[in-house]
Design a protein around this nucleic acid. Structure first.
Lengths: 328, 328
DNA sequence: AATATCAAGGTAAACGATTACTTAAAAAGG
DNA sequence: CCTTTTTAAGTAATCGTTTACCTTGATATT
């Protein structure tokens, strides 16, 4: 075990109170001589105060919980890194919880994190809206990122980008390129304001019919992309595909190529997220960038500022950016 | 704040000792009536014992620290997920620390984690060997994964795959395909047993000269791949490239294609790791799979079994597997 | 000179659990 | 009926900090 404050105090022949005050800068009533002595003893022994004891006493652990569906999905590590980078510089640790989008796991995560006395929570794409009342009632600072949930008036912060508008933009882009039959492959979502809405609006505005046979919705995964083009192309003629994210796009591209079709001359494809690997797909994927790293940073900053300085939570919309590459 | 054990005890009109015993199964001397009463009150109030208080008291926090270079590198999320999955089922939390391979950050991470009283540490590709004595002297259970360090006789566990042999295999593969001038692009490493050794041995065994002008070593990153082919191809003729990992391979492939060369007819390329995206590169990358998820699981299992049951640490070698795709 | 103020630091009670030790009553043994 | 053992539960110290409040001696004020 490492050295404790009591031992430092004994070595310096002062009380633990004095040591504590010096460490925490509450030292207006400590003489320079004592301060230096204690500090040098701390240095010599490379003493680090035990944060769990401190956490118990002050009821703040300088730890935040990050609950996300799956760190293995390449969109999330960027967010995670953003969170961790600002958390670290602000003296916070972050503990991760993968939920696989399962309600049960999500709840387990949260109560686990709560028992660890985390000072705050960041959710990314977390599941049940109905849980939010619980989370709120626990009274623990919370921010959601990239999650469509109504936080108005609540104590929950929110970081998001308007992916609905982004999808609107890219389907307009495809329409502008002359696409007549545009498919939509994405994850299922009950939300009215999700990406699907952007697709619908763009079609409608251009006087194009919305054809249910052209939409496939399942998960945000490569497999969904593959299954999506397989089921749609089995019966339909298509000259453009909007993918709910780049993972889906990667799957879709593979499946399209497998059918001997060329991208973009036969079918144009676009994704959203701009994950790191999108530029290495073949052809390099046209997509819209969500600033994942910045989202993570913004979320952590908002959360920790709230924890530390009681700064109010708010909603923050980050900008997306069209990344034109070679699939359109 | 959530409800405490004291409050539960008051509600049940027993002492906290009784509640604690019931929760922890040390209840041979508790009557059935009391047990049921307490349990039902716990249930009603969905009481969860505060793990930081418990941690302070028993000096075990059921938390492990995971220190890695960068979660953003697609090799690591898999390991992380493996760790987290077994940790979670065994009741442990895991806190992450990115070091960016900087000695200073690594040390900061470790002392931070130590102050959080983590019960164990998992290092992936961590830096300074000289630190290991420190880590050992802290006397905290540690396992290293995918890290070339001599743990013989120490209390440090180790999970690894013989990437040196893997590189040997793939350069043999390229030689078998008729390659005469094979470049090697990887990260710098001072270790004698690293991937570079496999490359050297394969060349030597086949009677091929080792030409310094064909090797470029920097980082495990896409940029290194790009810079590597740019500097090597500027002066050299090459018909095969061994890449230290798939990230490097992705960069190398891009740079090679940019020069108007075809893969694999002009230059054959192989990587190692088999990250998720390797099969979506163009052409799909031939590589050798490191079972990252399993490595994470194995590491967590060994660590936690040591923490919980004092099971001894050991070395575990996991198998790699050649993934033949279309770049050779 | 008596009192007030201040500097420098100490005391001890928290924080929320766990646990070695004690106690009281009941059951068993003689 | 008295002693011993067992059962059921309680007491209080402890883990390593922080912090409200106290003490002491010195200096300043009137």
């Amino acid at each position: 075990m490492s050295i404790t404050m009591k031992q430092i105090a004994d070595l310096a022949q002062v009380s633990t109170a004095t040591v504590s005050k010096i460490i925490n800068g509450r030292d207006e009533h400590i003489s320079q001589a004592t301060r230096e002595k204690v500090l040098s003893i701390i240095e010599e022994n490379s003493f680090q105060p035990n944060t769990v004891a401190k956490g118990l006493r002050v009821k703040k652990t300088s730890t935040i919980g990050f609950v996300l569906p799956d760190i293995t999905n390449p969109f999330f590590p960027e967010i995670a890194r953003g969170i961790e980078d600002v958390a670290n510089t602000m003296g916070f640790a972050v503990v991760f919880c993968n939920t696989d989008n399962e309600a049960k796991r999500e709840q387990a995560c949260v109560s686990f994190l709560q028992s660890k006395m985390v000072d705050g929570l960041i959710f990314t794409r977390s599941l049940r809206k109905s849980f939010f009342e619980n989370y709120l009632s626990m009274n623990i600072p919370t921010v959601v990122v990239d999650r469509d949930v109504d936080t108005a008036g609540s104590a929950i912060g929110k970081i998001y980008v308007d992916t609905r508008a982004a999808v609107y933009d890219i389907t307009k882009l495809l329409i502008g390129k002359g696409c007549k039959r545009i498919a939509f492959i994405s994850a299922m979502s009950t939300s009215l304001t999700d990406r699907y809405g952007g697709y619908c609006r763009a079609l409608e505005e251009s006087g194009m019919p919305l054809d249910e046979a052209l939409v496939y919705r399942e998960y945000y995964s490569v497999e969904t992309g593959i299954r999506g083009v397989e089921t749609i192309l089995a019966t339909q003629q298509v000259d453009g595909i909007i993918c709910g994210n780049d993972l889906i796009a990667a799957g879709a591209m593979q499946a399209v190529r497998q059918k001997g079709l060329n991208i973009p001359s036969d079918i144009r494809i676009v994704g959203v997220d701009n994950i790191y690997f999108s530029k290495f797909l073949y052809p390099p994927l046209t997509t819209v960038e969500q600033p994942a790293y910045e989202m993570g940073m913004a979320a952590a900053r908002m959360l920790i500022n709230n924890i530390l300085y009681k700064e109010p939570m708010f909603e923050q919309k980050l900008d997306y950016k069209l990344i034109l590459r070679e699939t359109v």
